[in-house]
Design a protein around this nucleic acid. Sequence first.
DNA 1: CTGCATCCGCAATGATACTG
DNA 2: CAGTATCATTGCGGATGCAG
Lengths: 143, 143
Amino acid sequence: MQEGTISIPGHREVTAPAQSRPRGDVYAANCPTRQLLDRIADKWSTLILMLLAAEDMRFNALKRRIQGVSQKMLSQTLRSLERDGLVSRSVEPTVPVTVTYAITPLGRGLFGSLSAMIEWAETCMIEVTAAQRAYDLKQASAG
Amino acid sequence: MQEGTISIPGHREVTAPAQSRPRGDVYAANCPTRQLLDRIADKWSTLILMLLAAEDMRFNALKRRIQGVSQKMLSQTLRSLERDGLVSRSVEPTVPVTVTYAITPLGRGLFGSLSAMIEWAETCMIEVTAAQRAYDLKQASAG
DNA sequence: CTGCATCCGCAATGATACTG
DNA sequence: CAGTATCATTGCGGATGCAG
């Protein structure tokens, strides 16, 4: 951990202490864009964002919907997303408390790119699977 | 590891033994699309694909260009990408051997969605950073 | 109900050394 | 140059328990 870092547990720091050249090079290790890319490239972030783009949801609703996520990771991811301003969290002071998550305008912007990706994934899944099988066969025979 | 799984090291299996319902639910743990999504959502895959979309590259050229990647991860990711049919690998039998990586048509399809995402990331980075700062401040005072 | 804190195993990653 | 093999470490992610 360096100076500018914060303590979000699930947040992998890229060692970016006061980067001086913010623009242009996504391939530089300390580029802030890459940090963002890492967040986007998170296993759960994508799924959450997709869900929230459709409708606001409660914590447990999300958890039920996204199979395989633990509350820890869900909570963690949600907090990261909130911190990035992609998701908003609103608390109604009922008893017990009611927490609702929603996508922000900023998040909705990202959602556009994301959905294109998902769509691609669903479309090309067949081809990819075929490629994998071919590759595996070749490996098995070649050694 | 289950039956259908293979031994690519960097490949996190989602326990998908002969999934029966391939379509529709990206949120199901065993959905093949999600496997693909995980691949896409890889830290290095994105970067590599972006680079190769611009031009064919050699191994070390990639390594030099992508700061912070270890040969191990680069090699690993490259192999995954090749297995998925997104990247092609060609070997010229020179001495020493010359290996060139290129993006495939399939990979280029994905590249479209990807570049939209990168573009978004670069555009909205400022806003996200601002949101982060605001969040952190709020935490610091309220926390 | 909605979380946060803690412990902990294991997979993923990185550093280093070695091969062709 | 283009990797593979080995070893050390990290921190993800799951399970559990507790709090508001």
